[in-house]
Simulated assay, not measured.
Amino acid sequence: MNEEIKILIIVLLDLMLPGKNGEDVLKEIQNKYEVPVIIISAKEELGIKPRLLRAGAEDFITKHFDLDEVLARIEVNIRRRKCKSVPIDDNLYKYKEIALNSNTREAFVNDTLITLTLREFEILSLLIKYPNKVFSKDNIFKSV
């Protein structure tokens, strides 16, 4: 049975990073990848939100925030974005250079077998099987 899964990566970026400026990280992400970036920051200086939105951020959330609001904003980005389709069969799941075989519990990156613990494999498998679902840490913990 051939199905398609859709995978979207969203970056949640805090501007207050140790040793590196979050605005520089945003520029690096924008230069290398085509992923939506949601800024989460306690910075409230005048003009920072429009500057970062114009620089490529999809959204800006000011700390202290409600987790439901963050999840809702992530879901909005999922609806807005066109996700990449990846063909799969019943036991093989692929995303870019990552392939998972759920029968043998093997994971490959660029066709090279990688060693994962059972829990790591289950988490990766969960995220690849349900690409449009937003998981909290508790969701992942309970599902795995």
Score class of each variant (00 low, 15 high):
residue 81 R to K: 14
residue 74 I to W: 00
residue 95 Y to R: 00
residue 66 D to G: 02
residue 76 V to N: 13
residue 56 G to R: 10
residue 65 F to E: 05
residue 69 E to T: 11
residue 99 A to C: 09
residue 67 L to T: 12
residue 98 I to Q: 03
residue 84 K to S: 03
residue 79 R to Q: 11
residue 73 R to H: 05
residue 84 K to H: 04
residue 89 D to F: 00
residue 63 K to F: 06
residue 60 F to S: 01
residue 66 D to K: 12
residue 92 L to R: 13
residue 84 K to R: 06
residue 84 K to V: 02
residue 79 R to P: 05
residue 71 L to F: 15
residue 65 F to T: 06
residue 98 I to K: 06
residue 98 I to R: 06
residue 100 L to A: 01
residue 58 E to L: 12
residue 73 R to E: 06
residue 88 I to L: 07
residue 80 R to A: 07
residue 68 D to G: 08
residue 99 A to P: 00
residue 68 D to W: 08
residue 96 K to A: 15
residue 82 K to M: 06
residue 66 D to A: 08
residue 65 F to N: 05
residue 65 F to C: 02
residue 84 K to N: 06
residue 76 V to Q: 14
residue 76 V to C: 08
residue 95 Y to A: 04
residue 83 C to G: 12
residue 85 S to P: 10
residue 61 I to L: 15
residue 58 E to R: 15
residue 100 L to F: 02
residue 55 A to T: 01
residue 54 R to G: 08
residue 71 L to P: 13
residue 67 L to H: 04
residue 76 V to H: 10
residue 73 R to D: 03
residue 57 A to E: 04
residue 98 I to T: 05
residue 64 H to Q: 10
residue 91 N to S: 13
residue 56 G to L: 06
residue 79 R to W: 00
residue 85 S to D: 09
residue 83 C to E: 10
residue 95 Y to S: 05
residue 54 R to H: 09
residue 56 G to D: 07
residue 97 E to A: 11
residue 82 K to D: 09
residue 78 I to V: 11
residue 88 I to A: 02
residue 69 E to I: 10
residue 82 K to Y: 06
residue 87 P to L: 14
residue 78 I to Y: 00
residue 78 I to F: 02
residue 66 D to C: 08
residue 76 V to W: 07
residue 84 K to E: 10
residue 58 E to P: 04
residue 79 R to A: 13
residue 92 L to F: 10
residue 71 L to S: 14
residue 63 K to H: 05
residue 61 I to Y: 04
residue 100 L to Q: 01
residue 88 I to Q: 08
residue 96 K to Y: 15
residue 64 H to P: 15
residue 83 C to I: 09
residue 87 P to G: 03
residue 63 K to L: 04
residue 63 K to M: 08
residue 86 V to G: 03
residue 59 D to G: 01
residue 100 L to Y: 04
residue 71 L to N: 14
residue 75 E to S: 11
residue 81 R to A: 12
residue 93 Y to A: 00
residue 57 A to M: 04
residue 63 K to C: 08
residue 55 A to S: 12
residue 67 L to G: 03
residue 69 E to K: 07
residue 62 T to W: 01
residue 56 G to N: 10
residue 99 A to S: 12
residue 82 K to N: 10
residue 74 I to K: 03
residue 77 N to A: 07
residue 67 L to S: 12
residue 57 A to Q: 03
residue 93 Y to H: 06
residue 64 H to V: 13
residue 86 V to E: 13
residue 61 I to Q: 10
residue 61 I to E: 06
residue 98 I to S: 02
residue 85 S to E: 13
residue 84 K to Y: 04
residue 62 T to R: 07
residue 90 D to F: 04
residue 54 R to L: 14
residue 59 D to A: 01
residue 78 I to P: 04
residue 94 K to N: 09
residue 84 K to C: 03
residue 61 I to S: 12
residue 73 R to K: 13
residue 71 L to V: 15
